[in-house]
Write a protein that binds this DNA or RNA. Structure first.
Length: 637
DNA sequence: AGCACGCCGACT
DNA sequence: GTCGGCGTGCTC
């Protein structure tokens, strides 16, 4: 017997091994096998009734039985094809690490019969294995395979959505899986569900042994309620399951690395195949899901409007801003603090840059070409990419001008201004991305005790619902102006999330030069449609997702000349791909790579795969120097 | 991805 | 004279 095994590596093909006599392995079971002189964890994708003495032997099973049913193994193939990732990497990202106990013994079969019963053994007949592996991906958010009989996914929106979800779970008798974008949210939901029944956690926030037991308990029926993150997407569930995805709009549902596919897209595809119900709970759905609902592929379940803070706009047009705080925001801060309430100032970035008042040039890193971050405290400029620190220049390198001033309201500048204006108020800066570990904890404690917190969007998680007296958006125009078609969507989500954290008599104050922007209007009127209607129209007119799909191809060869030449070769090949539009290669910020953006129809992955194959294959003529990101969440420029 | 092999610069 | 850089290629 020969087993075809895939590994967590960007290699498209499986590796073949002899199955030692007496073993019973199946497709979907993980094994340890020798590869490249090391013992590596792999996934058996096929078994062949042949033999070849020159092949190496498998070393030991890593799962005591298949962790993926044939149907789910096929789903993994679909995911890999969608995202142009390898099957092995996809398995590695979407499954929990194998149990050390199972890996240590030759073969375990004591739980086999019980567990197999809970796994769906076959896909709906109309969606055959070969069809789905070949299709490379017409289906998008909320698009069920033709003829499948799964209920439509439901978007739980509005106030009280999480309470409603909890009620629904309480009423359910079948298995329930709650999927969160991060471990902390998974933990929070585990606590909530614990009031109903025993809950197991499938995420990395619990010890590994507990995590493994959770999977087995869910499969065997010993546990009915589970929470987890991305590694729980393929957890064993019966067809009567309820699966809930929390905060569907969160970019964290599509973390870096393979498979580059949003958890929402994976869970919707799985639900359509397995025939279970999906609930997406979010304050502000992604535009993709909203459009799916408009097209009838998902249903909206709104709540009646709840108490809402007042929204105030401070129009900054025509005002030369030497101060981050306009008079209305300064007054709001003073009154909020005086009333013993807390305030949050949201800045769009942590740092400011230095620019020349005379010629307008921004001081950039010589090596990386990105704007150097201005620090008043350190009296220096620092590069966020390479770490280089240079003293503040006296004169403009471009025009020799002497008027260099900071621009952009970074957290540090805003903090300085607030402290100067309110010397007796406890002010804290919170930037969770910059400060991790012990320093992060200290910062968190300082922020928890402060009356005024200044931070980027990550600071929102410091505050519960209806806990703030004032949220000030110092300069949301910086967010809106980002060269990213999702800039509006992200700004809107942040505004709405801020409003939900304000007390009903609190105030959301927005300083902007675009006082009539529909994102602000929608929040002010507490009406999602005011934002989504024009946004969906804009996406449709300009051919952006979800109406067209995008892929970003990064080319990086050894020498700069090679990179450029290869990028041009790839671009020439793409120009002939039917139904796609290609934007010519552009240098990335570090000038070390070229990026090519391709727009295309829903089946874009299938169109790209053969065209890019010559560059994606390694060895044997291939170059292995390109990287493909399908459906990017962040615009790369 | 890891890891080995392989050919050119600064040093115990 | 070696140590070590990472460019190229392979792993059943």
């Amino acid at each position: 017997m020969i087993a075809d095994v895939v590994f967590d590596a960007p290699v498209a093909h499986p590796f073949s091994y002899r199955v030692p006599p007496g073993w019973t392995v199946g497709p979907g079971q993980r094994v340890v096998a020798p590869l490249g002189g090391a013992e590596r964890l792999g996934m058996v994708v096929a078994l062949r009734d042949e033999t070849n003495e020159r092949l190496k032997l498998l070393l030991r099973p890593a799962d005591s039985e298949p962790i993926l049913s044939p149907a789910h193994l096929d789903l993994v193939h679909w995911i890999a094809a969608q995202s142009l990732s390898s099957v092995g990497s996809t398995c590695a990202a979407l499954l929990p690490p194998p149990s050390p106990i199972a890996a240590g013994r030759p073969l375990g079969d004591e739980v086999r019969s019980r567990r197999a019963a809970a796994l769906p053994q076959a896909r709906p007949p109309e969606a055959s294995l070969s069809e789905s592996s070949e299709d490379g991906g017409g289906r998008r958010a909320g698009q069920a395979p033709l003829g499948a009989a799964a209920p439509r996914p439901e978007l739980l929106i509005g106030a009280g959505r999480e309470r409603r979800l909890l009620e629904r779970i309480a009423a359910a008798t079948g298995p329930v899986l709650v999927l969160a974008a991060d471990v902390e949210t998974s933990a929070r939901w585990a606590q909530r569900l614990a009031k109903l029944d025993r809950v197991v956690r499938l995420d990395s926030g619990v010890p590994e042994a507990e995590r493994c037991r959770a999977w087995a308990d869910l499969a065997g029926g010993a546990a009915r309620l589970a929470t987890g993150t991305r590694s729980a997407l393929l957890a064993p569930l019966g067809p009567d399951a309820i699966v809930a995805l929390i905060d569907e709009h969160e970019a964290a549902h599509k973390p870096p690395g393979p498979p580059r596919l949003h958890s929402r897209d994976i869970v919707l595809e799985r639900a359509a195949r397995d025939g279970f119900a999906v609930t997406l709970a979010t304050p502000t759905p992604s535009v993709d899901m909203w459009a799916a609902a408009l097209a009838g592929r998902a249903t909206l379940a709104p709540s009646p409007p709840a108490p809402w803070p007042s929204i105030a706009i401070a129009d900054t047009r025509g005002i030369l801003r030497r101060e981050p705080l306009t008079p209305p925001l300064a007054r709001g801060l003073r009154e909020t603090v005086a009333a013993g309430r807390r305030a949050l100032l949201l800045v769009s970035r942590l740092t400011s840059a230095l620019a020349c008042d005379e010629c307008g040039v921004v001081i950039r890193c010589e090596a990386c070409a990105i704007a150097l971050a201005y620090s008043r405290a350190a009296a220096a400029l620092a590069c966020r990419l390479c770490g280089r620190v240079v003293p503040l220049p006296e004169i403009c390198p471009a025009c020799r001008g002497r008027r260099l001033t900071p621009f952009g309201w970074g957290a540090e500048r805003v903090e300085h201004a607030v402290r100067r204006r309110f010397p007796n108020v406890r002010v804290a800066r919170y930037d969770p991305d910059a400060a991790r570990g012990a320093r992060g904890e200290a910062q968190r404690a300082a922020a928890a005790a402060a009356a005024v917190v200044i931070g980027t969007r990550g600071a929102l998680r410091l505050f519960g619902p209806a806990s703030l007296g004032l949220v000030g958006f110092v300069s949301p125009d910086q967010l809106l102006r980002l060269p990213d078609f999702r800039a509006g969507e992200r700004t809107f989500a942040l505004l709405w999330a801020s409003a939900e954290r304000l007390q009903p008599d609190g105030t959301l104050l927005i300083q902007t030069q675009h006082p009539t922007h529909y994102a602000f209007d929608a929040v002010a009127r507490q009406d999602l449609t005011v934002f989504y209607k024009p946004e969906v129209q804009f996406r449709a007119e300009l051919g952006y997702p979800p109406f067209r799909r995008l892929a970003v191809i990064t080319v990086r060869a050894g020498a700069p000349g090679d990179t450029e030449r290869t990028a041009n070769d790839v671009a020439a090949a793409l120009r002939d791909a039917p139904g796609t539009v290609m934007y010519p290669p552009a240098a990335d910020r570090r000038q070390r790579a070229r990026r090519i953006v391709v727009k295309g129809p829903p089946e874009l992955p299938r169109l790209l795969t053969p065209v890019l194959a010559p560059w994606r294959a390694r060895g044997a003529g291939g170059r292995g120097i390109i990287d493909v990101e399908v459906d990017p969440v962040e615009w790369p420029f």
